[in-house]
Nucleic acid binder design. Structure first.
Lengths: 205, 205
DNA sequence: ACCTGAACACCGTTCAAGT
DNA sequence: ACCTGAACACCGTTCAAGT
């Protein structure tokens, strides 16, 4: 890559990161090129599709997530590994608004620039799920795609402004459905409160 | 309303139903007006916002859903009433692609044409949930908004082409998390199979 | 009252012309 | 090699002009 091209690429990516943070995954590509002070064709040259651009933005996080899966396998119980990784997955898919839907589409679209990452991540999740199932701590009637779907649904919840405050709590609810013998309070984002505290909350208001 | 206006209104609605079925909630309004053989301004006169148009399309289904809630209260056990209504809710929110996100936004946006319907439906759901909780058959640490959120997430799952085949199964998984003492096989869309059959499925492939 | 469609400010995508 | 920006075919939304 020529030096000027490299510079454009890097700058484009930095600007895109800012704009996509603001506007979400369906941000205006024109706006990105404009703010980067670059012709619209230059953006298309470096990122032939919107997904290619997002893939470049998300790659780092995706790679970290795959590495995390391997780490959790050695450092935690099979149960904790699954739940912790699931939480990280949801956080990662929420880095930018609207990427979850693209990820769910990409997993079946071999042409998508996000396809490979999604398949890799599903495989990592499947591995953690299978290990937990073998130990009897995760329900046996779901597979890696179901896990992917549930994680996606949770990330989607966090994307909706009106539901985002519930996302942590509902993570616990769904996690308790995946696990065989755990209360949602052991697993939820606000575990510190415990179930009793939440009941008080409702009673108070 | 003048006779010609009434005719335009009705025709517009019929065409919109077809186009939104094809293209989803973010269908082209221009296209709807065009196919209806009507000026774009006419569409805006009858439906000042996209949400107003969708509200008109969804009203019937929403009303039926509210009626269903009352009916389930008298005809079924508190447990069955909650689950059956939830299933109907999800089906209703999936009538057109992309409405779920609008509904989740509308519940907090008093200006939205969908606001009233959403609040009514959440109230109906809350009622069924509270009754089930009082009997101890639904977990106590969720409220009507959580239920609304979970139902929305399930409807969203069904909207994603790659996840739709799992939607029924995952309905059972999430429902089993809401209920206190039910296996997901009692509640899932493919209850006929039972959990054993699903394990065989995995083992066979 | 109601309808129309041009006008405006935006998109995404492509591609001839420039360096 | 790489960049530019005009061109094209679309949007949503508004509003003066018509009946």
């Amino acid at each position: 890559m020529r030096a000027d091209a490299r510079k454009n690429y890097d700058h484009l990516l930095a600007v895109a990161r800012a704009v996509v943070t603001e506007q979400g995954a369906d941000a205006s590509l024109r706006d990105i090129a404009r703010r980067a002070g670059v012709g619209l064709g230059t953006l298309y040259r470096h990122f032939p599709t919107r997904e290619a651009l997002l893939e470049a933005l998300l790659r780092t996080g995706f790679d970290e997530l795959t590495a995390q899966a391997a780490e959790f396998e050695t450092s935690s119980s099979r149960e904790d590994a699954l739940v912790s990784w699931l939480r990280d997955f949801v956080a990662c898919a929420q880095e930018y608004r609207g990427v979850v839907a693209l990820m769910m589409a990409a997993i079946e679209d071999t042409e998508s620039a996000l396809h490979a990452s999604c398949v890799t991540m599903r495989a990592a999740g499947t591995r953690l799920l299978t290990r937990a199932q073998a130990e009897g701590v995760a329900r046996a009637d779901i597979d890696g795609t179901d896990l992917f779907a549930l994680a996606g649904a949770l990330a989607w919840l966090g994307d909706q402004p009106s539901l985002a405050p519930r996302a942590d709590h509902l993570f616990g609810v769904v996690a308790s459905a995946i696990l065989t013998n755990r209360a949602s309070s052991d697993v939820g984002g606000n575990a510190a409160l415990g179930p009793a505290a939440e009941i008080f909350e409702q009673a108070d208001t």
